[in-house]
């Protein structure tokens, strides 16, 4: 972003990569897939790179409001400094925080989740899918992330993206408003679960596997980790893959 600003460019969107998208090995692939799509369709975008910091979501959910606001205010200063108008992110937690919680601290942007952005690109005819690609007719189930679904009522965009791939979308029993959490929200990603008789991601993975889908599609880095671990735990990693939406699209586009 710094570079573009120095050249007097103001890109259409800011792609908010997020911590998982920057550091998590598995989610870096998602970032790369999404960026390939953006490059392919010629969207002008920028990233903040080292100027980006955690939105503060896990700190806030764990109760540390000071730390959250430190992160938030710093990020808002950076984004306002670049006069950012539109933010796209592949993380529903970043999406929720920037969209709903930054305005109270002076950060007002139009924020969209990458599933919504992909849907936009498909609807606008910018992404042309082969339709007969690798996933044609295959059973895929979509796992709703809490911070996209219930928290922000985005249920259809990711499903529309999947339908554009010509896959057979199979729903789990608990989907949309009744979707079961993967177990990582509310800062659970960063600690061991409390004592219980089962891990939440196992409960959810069992439900996903029961659909008979050959792939589980997600739209969230935490869900991706939790579901991948769940599938491994069930020794199904060779039969069932867990993908982010943008990976599926990029594969179909052959990029």
């Amino acid at each position: 972003m710094a570079e573009k600003a120095a050249n007097g460019e103001s890109p259409e969107i800011l792609f908010w990569v997020g911590c998982a998208g920057s550091f998590d090995d598995r989610y870096k692939a998602v970032t790369q897939a999404f960026v390939k799509i953006l490059n392919k369709v010629g969207t002008s975008f920028a990233v903040l790179g080292p100027e980006e910091g955690c939105t503060g979501d896990p700190a806030r959910r764990a109760g540390n409001e000071f730390l959250f606001q430190m992160q938030a205010v710093s990020n808002i200063q950076v984004m306002n400094g670049y006069n950012i108008k539109r933010v796209v992110t592949a993380c529903p937690h970043c999406f929720n925080t920037i969209k709903n919680e930054y305005p109270a601290l002076g950060g007002n942007y139009e924020v969209v989740h990458h599933s919504q952005f992909l849907q936009e690109l498909i609807n606008a005819g910018k992404i042309v899918l082969k339709g007969g690609g690798e996933f044609k007719g295959k059973k895929i189930t979509f796992h709703d992330s809490c911070y996209l679904g219930r928290a922000n009522d985005v249920y259809e965009a990711p499903r529309e993206v999947l339908k554009a791939l010509d896959v057979e979308l199979v729903e789990m029993k608990r989907c949309r408003t009744k979707g079961l959490c993967c177990g990582a929200g509310g800062a659970q990603m960063f600690k061991e679960p409390e004592p219980g008789n089962k891990d939440i991601n196992i409960e959810r993975t069992e439900e996903a596997l029961a659909t008979g889908a050959s792939a589980i599609a997600v739209g969230c880095p935490f869900c991706l980790t939790m579901m991948t671990d769940g599938v491994k735990n069930k020794n199904k990693e060779h039969e069932v893959q867990v993908y982010d939406l943008s990976e599926l699209i990029a594969k179909d586009m052959g990029i």
Binding site: S22, V35, G49, P50, G53, C54, A59, M70, K191, E192
Partner: peptide, 27 residues
Amino acid sequence: QWNAMFQNMETSFSPWKFAPTDRFNWA
């Protein structure tokens, strides 16, 4: 474990302990 996460965020602006300068390495 949450305290550790807080500490990471305070020092490297991420819940995980990675250098902020490595944020663009995915590219």
